[in-house]
Design a protein around this nucleic acid. Structure first.
Length: 575
DNA sequence: ACTGTGTGCGCG
DNA sequence: AAAGCGCGCACACAGT
């Protein structure tokens, strides 16, 4: 079985247009053989899709966000798609499409425009009043433009990498909707117990919970500030100063340096306050229903290609509450994360054999120590971070020269990316996602600094902003390529998981009531909800998919992507 | 009452 | 004011 994200087994495209009432499908086996479009009543469309799936088509639609939830609600999944919105964003910005009509053109659809829209639950509805300013771009025209832009990429390698990126991004759009549909198993009762244990009893009238209230009394007493509101940073700084504490901010890491009887209570209060406001009872009430947490995932929501989320803070779930993520009875969670993903990505991109070797069959940072590059694992880690983020101070910067000597190829790659950014240039990931250009204000600032009339302050500011942008582009290539690896990992994984079937159905919603499926993704980490009898197979699939993703991105280059994998009942039990 | 910005902290 | 990237969210506070 070959890599299933790859585009070689392209079986033809089915272009989907229309609305919830009437769907229009056009079969496109090749640019020359375009069948007559067929109109399908909205109610019949899931069945039509189910019948067509046996031919493994690629469904081309405006976005999976709009079209896919209805299919999932009907209990079915699709194998492959083209998310024209996500692919359009990539192609319009990509350095490899410069010179094509698509490059730099406005997006085909502005958010919410057009006659199909999506409500809060992801259901389709017909918009009564489409934005008149929005150009009515036809999906067929958009698809042709995108295909033309890809076919005009001269370099064959760059073209196939871009095809892989578009396929992986589209697969990600399916995963995002499937994860939302399935939901992350969440035990509200466990979460509630956890809250009471940490915060004390909740206040009946929406005030501070018991434990926060008693800490508040203690803080006011020890600072001799009776009416003090510690939630107000301005008020708190003044209160601290009045108590003889030299504080300019209320950040926890800064307060930790201070020796004063009020500080421990204050730090504890801030910790609890965070839990209470971000993931307390009101979070639970608004985000967890029927035993599931269902955030909206936003593939490509970050410039680098990472995902973002909308609502619920799904990518910031504190470790503190992960015990509430519990597998259904008879099911398990398979939790996997990629070890030292970004340095490994960098080694692969730069074809840095020595760095790849340092990470073979072991922790990459330990490998740097073993090969004598640095003295401790901690130094290896902060040093690599400094290389990838552009650090200039502290222990990280101190070991940078050693890393540069040991790994000239890897360090040159990020140094070049930084230099390009400082000049205002565009950098790209391995598969071809490009960084945005700096703003016109940025260019204006750079130009002003080289004007004879420029002050030293102008120059200083311009240099600082140039370096800022250089750190962004430096990190962009690594973070963005890591995001591409993660997309390929998930795309492979969802296909492998879909072939597995348990004997008896579980509580999970169809089409996932018998199959292991992704329920969470966090940049370099996935959680699979699996029938217990299939958990070990799912864990194996997770590993195989990681290896497959490595081959998709780096071919035969010998870079490994080891995972930490745990089969557990609750998320906090992993690693 | 609404909107925009700054602060602080959670995650990778 | 985190040394060094990328985010989202809640709250306080200031402006309308």
């Amino acid at each position: 079985m070959g890599e299933s994200v790859a585009v070689e087994r392209e079986q033809g495209v089915r272009l989907v247009r229309g609305s919830a009432d009437g769907v229009n499908v056009t079969v496109i086996d090749s640019p020359e053989t375009v069948a007559e479009p067929s109109d399908i009543p909205g109610a019949a469309w899931p069945r039509t899709v189910a019948e067509a799936e046996s031919a493994h088509p690629r469904w081309a639609w405006r976005s999976s966000r709009v079209w896919y939830p209805r299919l999932l609600d009907a209990g079915m999944r699709v194998e492959r798609c083209i998310d024209l919105t996500l692919c359009g964003t990539i192609l319009r910005n990509a350095a490899v499409t410069v010179g094509t009509p698509l490059h730099g053109s406005p997006p085909a659809w502005s958010h919410g425009a057009g006659h199909v829209a999506v409500d809060d639950d992801g259901a389709l509805f017909r918009m009564d009043d489409p934005e008149p300013s929005a150009p009515a771009v036809d999906e067929g025209a958009e698809l042709r433009q995108q295909q033309a832009a890809v076919s005009e990429i001269v370099d064959a390698g760059a073209a196939s990498r871009m095809r892989l990126l578009l396929a992986a991004e589209s697969a990600g759009s399916l995963v995002a909707e499937e994860m939302r549909h399935a939901g992350l198993p969440w035990r509200a009762d466990v979460h509630g117990e956890l809250l009471v244990e940490a915060l004390g009893a909740p206040d009946r009238f929406g005030g501070r919970p018991a434990r926060m209230e008693s800490l508040l009394v203690e803080i006011r007493e020890k600072l001799a500030a009776p009416g003090l509101n510690p939630d107000s940073p301005g008020e708190l700084v003044k209160g601290l100063q009045r108590a003889g504490i030299n504080a300019t901010s209320t950040r926890a890491w800064q307060l930790r340096e201070v020796k004063h009887p009020a500080i421990p209570a204050l730090l504890e209060y801030k910790k609890l306050s965070r839990l209470y406001t971000a993931n307390g009872w009101s979070w639970l009430a608004s985000w967890v229903h029927d035993g599931r947490f269902r955030p909206e995932y936003v593939p490509g929501g970050v410039v680098t290609g990472r995902w973002a989320t909308n609502g619920g803070g799904a990518l910031q779930l504190p470790k503190q509450i992960r015990a509430a993520v519990v597998a259904d009875p008879g099911w398990k969670l398979v939790v996997a994360d990629a070890a030292q993903l970004e340095p490994r990505i960098l080694a692969g991109m730069a074809h840095d054999e020595r760095m790849a070797a340092a990470g073979r069959r072991r922790d990459l940072y330990d490998g740097l120590v073993a090969s004598g590059v640095v003295d401790t694992r901690a130094h290896a880690k902060v040093g690599m971070l400094a290389a990838m983020y552009g650090g200039t101070t502290g222990d990280g910067a101190k070991v940078l020269p050693r890393l540069t000597r040991a790994f000239p190829r890897a360090t040159a790659l990020v140094a070049d990316a930084a230099a390009t950014g400082e000049r205002g240039g565009v950098v790209s990931t391995l598969l071809g996602r490009s960084s945005p250009e700096p703003s016109s204000e940025w260019f204006a600032g750079q130009a002003a600094a080289s004007d004879p009339a420029a002050t030293q302050e102008d120059e200083r500011r311009a240099r600082s902003r140039a370096r800022d942008w250089g750190r962004f582009t430096r990190n962009f290539v690594v973070q963005g390529t890591a995001a591409e690896w993660a997309l390929c990992w998930m795309a492979e994984l969802r296909n492998r998981l879909a072939t597995m079937t348990a004997n008896s159905p579980g509580l999970a919603r169809p089409p996932f009531d018998r199959s292991p499926h992704l329920v969470y993704f966090l940049h370099d980490e996935v959680v699979v909800h699996a029938p217990a009898e299939l958990a070990d197979d799912a864990a194996q699939a997770v590993r195989e998919s990681a290896a497959a993703a490595g081959r998709l991105l780096f071919g035969a280059f010998p870079i490994e992507f080891p995972l930490t994998v745990a089969v557990v009942d609750s998320y906090d039990r992993a690693k």
